[in-house]
Simulated assay, not measured.
Amino acid sequence: MGYHTFDASRADKLEEAGRRYRFVSAEELLWALSISPEATVADLGSGTGFFTDDVAPHAGEIYAVDLQEEMHEYYREKGVPENVDLVTSDVSDLPFDDGGVDAAFSTMTYHEFASEEALAEIRRVLAPNGRLVIVDWSGTGSGDDGPPVDERYSADEATDALRDVGFAIQHEAVRPETFLVVATLE
């Protein structure tokens, strides 16, 4: 289960607003993050920066974290906002100080990095009362969109994994193809 990485040669698909916003809107993501204008935020699995661009005007600094340098190259060509730093890294080994990130989010990438090590690393870099927002393809979905169902997690699996590493679940919403989880450090 999990560890499906999006094919960077298909990056143009990640810029299709109608498709992307169908599963989570910019407004819903910003509501879930609930950040201040000075916040330091990490977009985990940022890809082409589609959702990073939505959050950037509302944050002080954003780390666009992606494992694939090809995604950062695409983002550079598109144009990176001044307050966004591109970081090529695995989520299980983030190059940030302990407590150095106020909020983190993952849009349709949790299934790519879900592991106890990655969640513990996110916990390490989040500040006290830090917030983590996950929107991902649901293991209970049909599989008509997104990765194959056998590479996905259910909202229950995600919330259990988050609790296991010390997060408290503040909000959970399950939709036909996706789920949204808002978690904070306990």
Results as ranks from 00 to 15, higher is better:
S106F: 03
A114E: 11
L132P: 02
E121Y: 00
P147M: 12
I122H: 01
D145I: 13
V125W: 02
I122F: 11
D150M: 01
P147A: 07
L162A: 12
T159F: 02
T140G: 10
D145A: 09
H111V: 07
A114V: 11
L132V: 06
T107H: 07
D150H: 12
R131V: 15
S138F: 00
P148F: 06
M108T: 15
T109A: 15
A155R: 05
S142C: 04
E112I: 03
F113G: 08
P148W: 02
V149Y: 05
E112N: 15
V165T: 09
V125K: 00
N129F: 12
G146H: 08
R152P: 07
E116S: 07
A155Y: 03
R124I: 07
E117G: 12
P148L: 05
R123I: 01
S154L: 06
G139Y: 04
M108H: 14
D144K: 14
D145L: 04
R123D: 13
E116T: 09
S115Q: 11
V165R: 06
F113M: 14
D150G: 03
H111T: 07
V125P: 00
S142T: 15
E117Y: 10
R123E: 14
A158N: 07
I134V: 15
W137V: 09
E157L: 08
A155W: 01
E117M: 09
P148N: 09
L132W: 01
M108G: 06
A114D: 13
A155S: 15
T107A: 13
P148I: 08
F113C: 10
M108W: 10
Y153Q: 05
G143T: 04
S142A: 07
E157I: 03
Y110E: 12
F113D: 14
D156L: 05
T159A: 02
R124L: 06
T140L: 10
R152V: 05
E157W: 05
G130N: 01
Y110K: 09
S138P: 00
S115R: 07
S138N: 11
